[in-house]
């Protein structure tokens, strides 16, 4: 199977008047179709930078990223990017927020509108479509943000600490919700997180980055023994703790 995302020898140096910061150094990994990959690493190791490079928002100073074999030269409709906060615009209704990406891509047609309505209906937000974001709870807002990304029909989802703004309980529920949606819609996902448990509970593979300059320190295949896997049920499997300990050791945190 051909990988959907290939990161090939990617390095990134930021220039500033105070000098040069090497954020990433020689990163290599790939993501297969339909796979869920988590990236964990210490603060400031270049995780956000890596996602920005994959999305084509910024360009690496060395190496190449391929999406389905094509070199990344700029932002691509194949990619949906979810940021840390939902960034719903409070001057737009839920429906108008969901339509943002389609408006920008000048792709508002009867069929895309219908798709948006269908997604809102499927994920329990239809009756809120004419409300404004501040009338919704944090978990619902995060789901709206996901739908806003999904209506543009991306093949690959990049999630940059997409759940870290939520409180713990909500976060567990939203993990399940979003995992469910991603699997149902058959998307490939790349999740950046600080949270080791979260990374294991959702992913097929976990990529561990070292502290700055970020390099791939290890890649863990996650094989959990449970039927009907969900992030919540993953956390209850016997293997979970084992992976947690291994990644924790790999992170090598000193306090």
């Amino acid at each position: 199977m051909k990988p959907v995302v290939e990161v090939h020898n990617v390095g990134m140096k930021y220039q500033s008047l105070n000098g040069e910061i090497t954020a990433l150094d020689n990163i290599n990994f790939s993501v297969n179709d339909g796979e869920f990959v988590s990236i964990v690493g210490p603060s400031g190791c270049g995780k956000s930078t890596l996602l920005s490079i994959i999305s084509g928002l910024i360009f690496s100073t060395s190496g190449t990223v391929f999406l389905s074999g094509e070199k990344v030269m700029g932002t691509s409709p194949k990619i949906g990017y979810m940021l840390q906060k939902d960034h719903l615009f409070n001057w737009r209704t839920i429906y108008q927020n969901v339509m943002l990406g389609l408006e920008i891509r000048k792709n508002v047609t009867p069929s895309t509108k219908e798709h948006a309505i269908k997604l809102l209906r499927t994920y329990g937000l239809y009756e809120f479509k004419d409300k404004y974001p501040n009338q919704l709870s944090g978990g619902m807002r995060q789901r709206v943000a996901l739908i806003r990304t999904l209506v543009t029909d991306p093949q690959i989802l990049l999630l940059d600490e997409a759940f870290s703004a939520l409180d713990y309980q909500t976060r567990l529920v939203v993990n399940d919700d979003i995992y469910d949606i991603i699997k149902k819609e058959n998307k490939t996902a790349l999740l950046v997180t600080h949270d080791i448990s979260e990374s294991i509970s959702m992913a097929d593979r976990v990529v561990l980055l070292s502290k700055r300059p970020g390099t791939v320190k290890n890649i863990y295949e996650i094989n959990l023994n449970c039927d009907n896997r969900t992030p919540l049920s993953s956390r209850e499997t016997p293997e979970f703790r084992h992976y947690f300990q291994e990644i924790w050791k790999g992170l090598d945190v000193h306090v």
Partner: peptide
């Protein structure tokens, strides 16, 4: 204005005018 909001528009391929 929050730079991330601008980034959001850019992730959809938005232009400066957008």
């Amino acid at each position: 204005i929050d730079q991330e909001k601008i980034k959001l528009v850019q992730t959809f391929g938005g232009t400066k005018f957008q």
